[in-house]
Simulated assay, not measured.
Amino acid sequence: MTRLLLVDDHPIVRAGYQRLLEMDGAWRVVAQAGSVDEALDLHRQHQPELTITDLGLPGRGGLELLRQLTERDASVRVLVFSMHEGEAMVRRALAMGARGYVSKSSPPQELLDAAACVMTGCRYLCSGLPAHWLQPLPPQGDPDGLETLSDREFEVFRLLARGLTPADCAGTLSLSSKTVSNLQTQIRDKLGLASTAAMAHLALRRGVIEGG
């Protein structure tokens, strides 16, 4: 059976899709995590063959987990299972190394299909999302400039848009205040935005953050 790590900050959700996966008979959940730090520790301990993670994790979030896992091992298999369906978030996760992306609004069977597909070495995008999102976006296809942001800039952008202060971002991402300040300036320059409120408006419109 394929060994899995499940990452979601809601224990009931984790229990639900553990049951779904293990009933299929091809999967065994070896560990569960509710945060980025816990997931990184458990991944190191258990070396799962597949990690299934939400993006909406507390603190640094699932993109940071994805970044760190792929930095450790470029061949790591990560399947995103998330409520986020915005193009910017989906494309960013895939560009950062996710092997597949499944929306939490998908039918249960789709999670099983996606996991099986990823384990064969293929990439997977759930049926509710446009298939062309699996392909890189040409520069002219991104008038807002989000694709020009580095992975670190994108994560700082996401946190600032959620209402965190630069000091909060520094603590959350274990960066210096000066680094975050420089990143904030770079983000504003690349996106042509003058304020954090404008960042939040763009992030909401592109599905990077959810509305309250």
Rank of each mutant, 00 (worst) to 15 (best):
V156W: 09
A15Q: 14
W27H: 12
S181W: 08
L79D: 05
D189K: 12
T179S: 14
L193H: 06
L79V: 10
G192Q: 11
A161Q: 11
D41Q: 15
S75M: 05
G97R: 07
Y17I: 11
V118L: 08
A88R: 05
A114G: 03
M1D: 06
P130L: 07
M119G: 06
F81S: 03
L57M: 09
T120A: 05
D142G: 01
L191Q: 10
T185H: 15
P107H: 13
A131I: 13
V29W: 05
D113C: 00
L183Q: 09
A198D: 11
T196Q: 13
A15P: 01
L65T: 04
Q184F: 01
Y101N: 06
W27A: 13
G56V: 00
Q186N: 15
L183P: 00
I209H: 04
R123H: 14
Q135P: 01
D113A: 10
V30G: 02
R99A: 14
L173A: 06
V102G: 02
V208C: 04
L79C: 09
V36Q: 08
S181H: 12
V180A: 09
A31K: 03
E87Y: 01
A98C: 04
Q68V: 02
P108H: 05
G121I: 02
A74S: 14
L94S: 05
F154C: 07
R14N: 08
A15N: 12
R67H: 11
G171F: 08
T165Q: 12
T51F: 08
H132L: 12
T196M: 04
R44W: 07
Q140P: 00
L129W: 13
